[in-house]
Amino acid sequence: MASTIRCDIVSAEEEIFHGDAQMIIATGEMGELGIAPRHAPLITRLKPGQVRVLLENGEEQFFYVSGGILEVQPSVVTVLTDTAIRAKDLDESAARKAKEEAERALANRSDAIEMAQAQAQLAQAMAQLQALEKLRRSLKH
């Protein structure tokens, strides 16, 4: 079985593909890569694009990856894909958004929603107390 290589494609959210392949073709950061069995150990980042897996029976499977890492070991190829579309400025803006969210949360400490929540809870407690009071009175006589 020297003519196939095990291939795992996984993302953080799920396992995408798992099986034996004749060849794996992916877009690495430095260019197109075709991994055949007995390829030298290699690790590279992937560009967004297709990963093609040539199966044992000659069938081809396509996977779209939005970046990730390709790792080649003597007996196994692992593709760790990103699920999200990643770019430096996109990441930056996500980070900024998280910060703004925190600032917004800090700015309105006496949040209207929180106030409403507390009031609703208070009203509920009062109603319960009244009900209990009534019950107690009705039990006395």
């Binding site: 699920t83 996500a94 998280a98 910060k99 800090l106």
Partner: peptide
């Protein structure tokens, strides 16, 4: 508090956590 993210729902996605 330097960052917040809320309402990830039933199927959280990694994209929402990156920030």
């Amino acid at each position: 508090l330097v960052g917040t993210v809320t309402h990830l729902g039933e199927k959280p996605q990694i994209a929402e956590l990156i920030g």
